[in-house]
Design a binder for these strands. Sequence first.
DNA 1: CGACGTGTTGAGTGTGATCAACATCTGTGG
DNA 2: CCACAGATGTTGATCACACTCAACACGTCG
Lengths: 250, 250
Amino acid sequence: MENGGVRPRRHDCPECPLLDCRAFRKFAPDELEFMRRFKKGERIVPAGGTVVREGEASEHLYTVLDGWACRFKSLEDGRRQILTFLLPGHLIGLQGSVMDVMQHSVEALSDVTLCVFNRNELWTLYERFPSLAYDVTWLTSRDEMLLDENLTSLGRRHASERVAFLIVHLYRRAEIVGLAGDHRVEFPFTQQDVADALGLSLVHTNKTLKRLADRGLLRWRSGACEILDLEGLARLAGYDLVDPLPRPLI
Amino acid sequence: MENGGVRPRRHDCPECPLLDCRAFRKFAPDELEFMRRFKKGERIVPAGGTVVREGEASEHLYTVLDGWACRFKSLEDGRRQILTFLLPGHLIGLQGSVMDVMQHSVEALSDVTLCVFNRNELWTLYERFPSLAYDVTWLTSRDEMLLDENLTSLGRRHASERVAFLIVHLYRRAEIVGLAGDHRVEFPFTQQDVADALGLSLVHTNKTLKRLADRGLLRWRSGACEILDLEGLARLAGYDLVDPLPRPLI
DNA sequence: CGACGTGTTGAGTGTGATCAACATCTGTGG
DNA sequence: CCACAGATGTTGATCACACTCAACACGTCG
């Protein structure tokens, strides 16, 4: 694709739709002005498309502006582990500044709109806007927390607990950025993806979802999930339903 | 413990023993001077002691100067998941700047010496030393990579692959900071800890280690592990034996 | 219409969990 | 010096959670 698929911006940073979300902290005027110049354009990746690929260098940094994506690693023989689901406000590609090539892939689950930043200018951001640099660290640190929880699930929770945990977790994250509400989330992915995120087989994931449905906790439909008993799911999963702190946006 | 167990430094930053390691990048003179003032003292935690506890706030930031520690989460019913093993050069407690209380615990496995930093001054570091701020991000990002690999193990690798992966991984990390060599690592922890890191039961971990020993790949002794066939282990684990890039030290 | 993607269900299998007993080793107190 | 307790590691027997294989249902799209 010419120019890596980067096209002019449709959303100017001061009018960024995410700024309306109470989930994110507000920018100071000079920060916003910097972000505006930092942002090189946008990129739209259709559902199923690849944003960055394991083993390749990534020229850009991205932020998810709209849509769902996932970050995953693959083993030689095709086994796949989804590491995180990415929602609007998620920063992509920072690891490319640490390693020469990406150690994971990112794939669009729905059609995804990305803000594109030039990796080379990240250093300018660190030099001139320590507050934004701090925000980058903040986001990375939060990412690590998500992984911690995930790892605990895969290591020490049973299938039904894992599924409950993931569903509650995704529902709440989606709700905060306006992609879910009223006990219903659109999930632009399949049970196979849930399985790959939870370290389970497709069949067992399916049976576990059915068992949760039989217990009146949720209902899975292709492309969406109804949360029938949020507290019940949270209790089963050992998930703490506290309100998250407002977070920075890059 | 009075003053949180913080005592005067024994190691002045310019003479930091870790700076001799080829694993770490060198400081510029002004960076080193800043680090010297940033460092508040040292803290020694005896084997088995707690550095920070899940659910509590952590006043300080730490860097492991010497010894082994681990980061873990606990579930209500006592199930425990070790998230990462910490070796010299590892930064501890950054998440405390993102969340109000720690979401994980850190425990000393051997006697551990920590450099103590005042969390409040982290902001000064960001303002005055963008290069060091960048290093903090670098370290956090690397941490995330370690978690990614771990998560992939727990989700998609069999017991023998997991064990092989962990052993190779720990051996190489220890080697780089001078805590292992000549196909031998001192492991100041038990098979129970290995089990808690890999999401396996103690018994199964033991049997898996025995099977690897029978295949001539390694030999476990209390307190240490001999690597009999590094390449064989790496092959089994799908571990890529490339030399890591030099990394920053905070 | 058939092909394909997704979800559903049953049958049989196996990896890894649990339970239980025992072997070592170390440190401690008598 | 020995007896004992506790921590760690080892091994066998049994169990069960989750995997694999296989078939089918249902929708959408060409």
